[in-house]
Write a protein that binds this DNA or RNA. Sequence first.
DNA 1: CCATCTCAGTGAACATCGTTCATTTAGTAG
DNA 2: CTACTAAATGAACGATGTTCACTGAGATGG
Lengths: 207, 207
Amino acid sequence: MGSVERRERQKADLRAQLLDAARTIVQEHGLEGLTMRKIAEAVEYAPGTIYLHFPSRDDLVRELVRDGFLELVNYLKPAAQIADPRERLAAIGYAYARFGVERPATYRTIFLQPPDISRALADMRPGCEKGPDGDGVGAFGILEQTVAELIARGDFRQLPATVVAETIWGWLHGLVALRATCDQKMLTDFDTSVRLAIEGVHRAFAA
Amino acid sequence: MGSVERRERQKADLRAQLLDAARTIVQEHGLEGLTMRKIAEAVEYAPGTIYLHFPSRDDLVRELVRDGFLELVNYLKPAAQIADPRERLAAIGYAYARFGVERPATYRTIFLQPPDISRALADMRPGCEKGPDGDGVGAFGILEQTVAELIARGDFRQLPATVVAETIWGWLHGLVALRATCDQKMLTDFDTSVRLAIEGVHRAFAA
DNA sequence: CCATCTCAGTGAACATCGTTCATTTAGTAG
DNA sequence: CTACTAAATGAACGATGTTCACTGAGATGG
């Protein structure tokens, strides 16, 4: 009978619905406003039902984090296809910043969580995924590879690509994180900060 | 009678005890592990008593944030007294990084909170305090003034000091924040990142 | 067609959280 | 000694995440 498959499909459907509802709530009320009961209410099920699909709230959040990273990669993809690594690096920077501004709740969910959640995240190293050719296809991989090309080409100083990439990431992360948490505390126009940072990266690491 | 004064003193004492207990709990279990009942238990009072001294948990946390900033300033103070602004800037950077590493829970409490808490913070603009001469005495003020001197001296390009200072802050913040949240995810030695960032700042903004 | 079995779904219950408030307690003033 | 004041209590309320004995609808086997 195909009935068992249908039931599996229905189960997967509900799981997807739960994640969708959760995403919406996070967008609107932030991760700390995400409640099992709110999710249940959104899909019109009892709260206990969620636990048939996720062992705990933390696991559900981890799922959100995982596809938050995919969303980030989608922001970076157009930039990643630029041929010239110099232009590409700048485009990646702007795209990353745009992601932070347009999806602050997602940004917080991914990158600004208490250590307990991030610790579990560290194990799966999201963002570092490599494609079949060893090319970076995760968010960090894209950046790292671009930096590696710039070093190989002689544009950047001879430093480990990973180190440089992580430093650049840190710089951008700082600007975006400050926006995501203390937006109105900031005195400088965001675009100006980002432009300065991207120019600064070239000046700082130029050979 | 001095009895009323004694009672006020006792009241202030308990308030201080409550904050002390809270600080300890935050250091050990993070801000999300801070519970009114835990604080009460630590000072051996009933939970309700705390509300005679603080209107809400959020207000108590805001108090913690306030003196978290003072702690940061204490880290920066030695660096702030260096005469040469170039050396001073580097020293400030290292001190800031050291603060983040040695007091990760405090760093999180101050800088990595959900927008609701940070929003209230924005109004009091901690870190931007000016002394009687208009000199920066808050954490950000110290940085901003140093940058202003470097610009005035011709070491740095002619850009608004506030903008440059905020950008530098952002860069360091990114590195420290990544450590504070995803320590074991990082591939690069922290000292290396910080050194690269501080060198990078000079290269990036040099005239 | 009925009995049985399976399993998604339920919702009451538990512990914990921040917070409130009627009540008790202790210490001062008259 | 009495009356008053203010600190302190602890039970209670409505949330939260999570569990679990139960229900009920649909598939299976005779």
